[in-house]
C-alpha cells in the first residue's frame, strides 16, 4: 500500500468511528445495544429518526465543504479560497431563505435545495468575475467580504419581511448552521444534489493538476478551460448550495481541511480531493459531537464551534501567506 492508501484508510476509519460515536451522542442516554434493535420503541425512534439523519448529514455536508474547499483553492490558485469565506455559503443561505419563507418550499419540496443551489451559483460566479484566478489574496478576500455581507443583509431583510413572526429569529441558524433535529426528509432532499455536485468536483482533478503549471500549459495539455470552469463552479454550487439549504452555512471546514492534509499528500490538487472530502466529514462529525457533549443548557450552533477553531487558523494562514508573498 502506498502512503496515500494508508492516509485514505486512516481517514475512512476515523469517519466510521466518529459516525458511530455521533449516533451515541445526544440528550438521551442510549446504550450500544439499541443499534441492534434492542431497547424500547422510543429509543429506536431517537436513533433512526433523529440521530441517523443528523450523522448522515454531517458526513455528506462535511464532505461537500471539504472537497469544494480543495477544488476552489486549486482552481483559483489561492490558499484562502473557501465556500464560506468567499460568500458562496451566504449566497446559498439567501437562496434557501427566499424559497422557504416565501412559501415556495411548501409547494414542492425540491424548491429548497434548488433555491440554495441558485444562490450559491450566483455567488460563486460573482466571485469568479470579481476576483478571477490568480488574483491577489486581498482581491479575493475583499470580493468575499462584499458578497458575504450583501447576501447576509438580504437574508435578514427577507427574514424580517416574512409574514411569520418566528422567521426573524432564525437568522442565527442561517448564519451559523446547525444539524439539530433534521430528519431523513432533509437527507433525501439534499444528498442526491450534493453527491452529483461532488461527482462534478471529482472530475476536475486532472484539469486542476494541469492548471497548477499555468493556464497556457494546461491548454497545451488539452484541458478545456470552459469545461473545467463549468465543472468547478457548477459542482461547488450544487454541493454547497444543497448542503447549506438544509444545514445553514457552516464556516471554515473547506478552508481548514485541505491545509491540514496538503503536507501529508504533496501539492498535486487531484490527490487532495478525496482526502479533503473524508477530512471534512470527520471534522464536521467531530464538531457536531462536541456541541452535543458540551454541558450547555441550550445547544451551541455548529458554526460557533467551527469558527472558534477556523478563525484563528485563518489568521495564521493569512500571516503565513503574507510572509511568503509580501
Amino acid at each position: 500500500m502506498t502512503a496515500r492508501h494508508w492516509l485514505l484508510s486512516g481517514l475512512l476509519f476515523t469517519v466510521g468511528t466518529l459516525f458511530l460515536l455521533s449516533l451515541m451522542s445526544g440528550r438521551a442516554e442510549l446504550t450500544w445495544s439499541v443499534l441492534f434493535g434492542n431497547g424500547q420503541a422510543n429509543a429506536q425512534l431517537i436513533l433512526w429518526e433523529l440521530r441517523l439523519p443528523r450523522s448522515l448529514l454531517a458526513v455528506i455536508v462535511g464532505a461537500a465543504l471539504g472537497m469544494s474547499g480543495a477544488v476552489l483553492q486549486g482552481f483559483m490558485r489561492n490558499p484562502l479560497a473557501d465556500a464560506g469565506l468567499i460568500g458562496v455559503s451566504a449566497g446559498a443561505a439567501l437562496g434557501a431563505v427566499l424559497t422557504l419563507y416565501s412559501g415556495l418550499a411548501a409547494l414542492f419540496a425540491l424548491a429548497l435545495p434548488l433555491g440554495g443551489l441558485s444562490g450559491a451559483a450566483l455567488a460563486v460566479t460573482l466571485v469568479y468575475l470579481l476576483a478571477g484566478r490568480d488574483s491577489s489574496i486581498l482581491t479575493l478576500i475583499l470580493a468575499g467580504v462584499a458578497i458575504n455581507s450583501f447576501a447576509a443583509a438580504l437574508t435578514s431583510l427577507a427574514l424580517n419581511m416574512a409574514p411569520n413572526p418566528y422567521a426573524a429569529l432564525e437568522i442565527v441558524f442561517w448564519l451559523l448552521g446547525s444539524l439539530a433535529e433534521r430528519s431523513m426528509e432533509h437527507v433525501s432532499l439534499a444528498a442526491p444534489l450534493i453527491l452529483a455536485g461532488m461527482a462534478m468536483l471529482m472530475a476536475t482533478g486532472r484539469g486542476l493538476d494541469a492548471l497548477s503549471l499555468g493556464e497556457d500549459t494546461a491548454r497545451s495539455l488539452g484541458i478545456s478551460m470552459p469545461l473545467l470552469r463549468l465543472l468547478v463552479l457548477g459542482g461547488t454550487a450544487l454541493s454547497v448550495g444543497a448542503a447549506v439549504a438544509v444545514t445553514g452555512s457552516v464556516g471554515f471546514i473547506g478552508l481548514v481541511v485541505p491545509h491540514l492534509l496538503r503536507p501529508l499528500i504533496g501539492y498535486r490538487p487531484s490527490q487532495l480531493l478525496l482526502p479533503s472530502a473524508l477530512g471534512g466529514a470527520a471534522l464536521l462529525l467531530a464538531a457536531d459531537i462536541a456541541i452535543r457533549r458540551m454541558p450547555t443548557d441550550v445547544e451551541l450552533k455548529l458554526g460557533v464551534l467551527t469558527a472558534l477553531i477556523g478563525a484563528p487558523f485563518f489568521l495564521y494562514l493569512l500571516i503565513r501567506t503574507r510572509r511568503q508573498h509580501p
Partner: peptide, 20 residues
C-alpha cells in the same frame, strides 16, 4: 395554518414527533 413555513414550525413536522 400559517403563511409560509419556518424552520421553527418544521420541528412540529418532524417524523419522530408525528409518530409519537
Amino acid at each position: 395554518q400559517q403563511q409560509g413555513s419556518t424552520l421553527a414550525e418544521q420541528t412540529l413536522q418532524h417524523p419522530a414527533l408525528r409518530q409519537m
